[in-house]
């Protein structure tokens, strides 16, 4: 069976040539992936496997940056680098900030 990320040869419409400049938070996701790879905490194939195990619903609902972020956080949790509890607590704390955006 074809996996959902395996798009080669499947029907699709015209190509949108709009050039989208990445925003800072999207660049930070790339930077985190670079740093985690460089520090040998995550390997590039683990990131790929993470993307391929998100499930088709999450994969297609998320943007490119979003699905990379999801894959990264899933991997960090699976590897015990961060815990689900610490992540939930941190997100709640960020939501409670008066001016959360840096």
């Amino acid at each position: 069976m074809r996996a959902y990320h395996d798009l080669g040869g499947t029907p699709a419409g015209p190509i949108d040539h709009d050039e989208h400049a990445l925003q800072l938070w999207e660049k930070r996701i790339e930077a985190l992936l670079v740093l985690l790879t460089r520090k040998k905490i995550l390997r590039i194939d683990e990131n790929r496997r993470g993307l391929e195990s998100l499930g088709s619903e999450a994969y297609f609902a998320a943007s490119y940056a979003e699905r990379r972020m999801l894959s990264m956080s899933n991997n960090l949790i699976m590897k015990g680098v961060i815990s689900v509890e610490a992540l939930a607590a941190k997100i709640a704390e960020i939501e409670s900030r008066v001016d959360p955006l840096p």
């Binding site: 938070w25 930070r28 972020m69 961060i82 997100i91 939501e95 959360p100 840096p102």
Partner: peptide
Amino acid sequence: LTYYRKLEMAVRELL
């Protein structure tokens, strides 16, 4: 401040 932006901030700050 979307969910994914919060996720990026949270993971970065924890690391």
